[in-house]
Every structure is written in C-alpha cells, then in structure tokens.
Amino acid sequence: MIRFILPCALGLSALSPAHAEKLPIFDAHIHYSHDAVLSVPPTEIVEILRKAGVRKALVSSSDDRGTQLLLEAAPDIIVPALRPYSRRGQTGTWMHDPATIDYLEDKFSKFEYEAIGEFHAYGDDIKTDVIQAMIGMAKDRNLILHHHGDREALDLIFDTWPEARVLWAHSGFEDPDDISDALNTYPTLWADLAYRSEMASYGTLYEGWKALFLAHPDRFMVGTDTFAPERWHYVGPHADFSRSWFEDLPDDVARKIAYENAETMLAAK
C-alpha cells in the first residue's frame, strides 16, 4: 500500500516508467445488487468506474435489475452476467429451488449476457437438477460460468461440460499450489483474485504468488467484489492496490492480469 501512497505524496509519479500511464483495469468480479441500486445511483457508479480507470467490468447482481441499469448507463464498460438468484441470502439454497430455472429462462428471454454467475456451489451441489439445467443453458448459449466454490465443485462442472469456460471466483480461496494445479488441469479455467489481498504486501508480491502469476500469466484477473453497497466506494482503492503489486511483475504480465486476460476469456467463444 505504501508504495502507491508515497510516490503520490512525494510528487514522484512522473519519474517512474511504471506510473507513466495508469494501467486500465478489467474488474471481473463486481455486483450491483438490489440494495446498492437503492443507495448508489447508476450515474455515480459509472463515475466511480471511470475515475478508477476501470475500462470493463463483469457485473452480476442479485435480482439483475442493477446489471441492466448499469448496462444502459455505460454499455461501453459493462459486461453483463446473470446471477441465478435474486437475493444474496439464497447463496446456499438456490440450487434446490426449481424456480431458479424459470428465473433464468425468463431473463434469457429478455436480455443478453456473457456469463452466468457469480453463483455459489460446493461439492455435490453441482449434481442438483437445477445446476445441471443451468450448465445446460450456459452450454446452449456458450456462456462463461463464474463459479464461487471449492475444487470438488469445479471438477464436477468440468465433468458436466468439459469445454466450459469457467471463471473461478476468488481463485477458490485456495493457496497458490492448489490454484496452479487447477489451472494445469483445466485449460479453459481462469481465476479471479477478488477479496484476496494476501498475494502482496506494500506492493511486493510474496514468492509463491509471484511464481504462480509468472507460471500462469494468461489466467488471472482482478475484481473488487462489491458485496455490500458501500463497497462501490472501494473500487478505486482496490484498483490502486492492484496496480501497486502489478509493478512487481513484468509489464506484459501486469497488463494481462489488469485487463487482457479477461478480454481474452470473453473472446474465447
């Protein structure tokens, strides 16, 4: 953190080549849910994103209305994803509710999406009829699956649909070795780093994480995870935090994690 504070405080920003241009960000894990819609208007959201240097954002929202509002306000930034439930409180139950299927079909009949998610599912949850049907819908439409869950669930997703493009939310909250194993196992798996800050301290990457990023430079992306409405005000600080540890990577790898990998994932249809 201090590495990105001090240069500003000391007026040194123009002296460092890495700071010469503010690296744009593809924020691959962001929500604009029903409560955020009530608290932060779309115009303010768009202003926050632009000010933070976020050029694209994969947005999913509990009840989806927020995603559509943002898409209307900033179609150049917003990449819409469909969350399969309308309230965050359903994260542990939605896969047992047959109404989920109707909900998804209704949304697909009205709007276009690039992904389904972020959805929470662990272990055998993937075998439920609801999730199997949901994966089928994603397959029919060639959509990315933005999955929040464990390795067992991840394996079952790829068992169900081996060619799936999966974005593993929070990199499964796994450690670098286990993330690496998953990435080696599945060539169409990408991993977001939302809500994870343990990879770096004051702009310096820890050894294991740096090795991971260098071994898999094409597979990671960052995300703010605005799980509470107030956290929209964290989009800027989060982008700056990411830029601080990007400086500890070769420029091309930093650029990939900042935005290129997400764009590649979207294009890999």
Binding site: M1, Y195, S197, E198, D225, A228, R231, Y234, H238, F241
Partner: peptide, 9 residues
C-alpha cells in the same frame, strides 16, 4: 500491520 480488502468498513 498489513492491508486487507476486508478492512474497508
């Protein structure tokens, strides 16, 4: 002390 995304709020 280390910075953590969870610190916000």
């Amino acid at each position: 002390v280390r910075f953590n995304h969870a610190n916000f709020g």
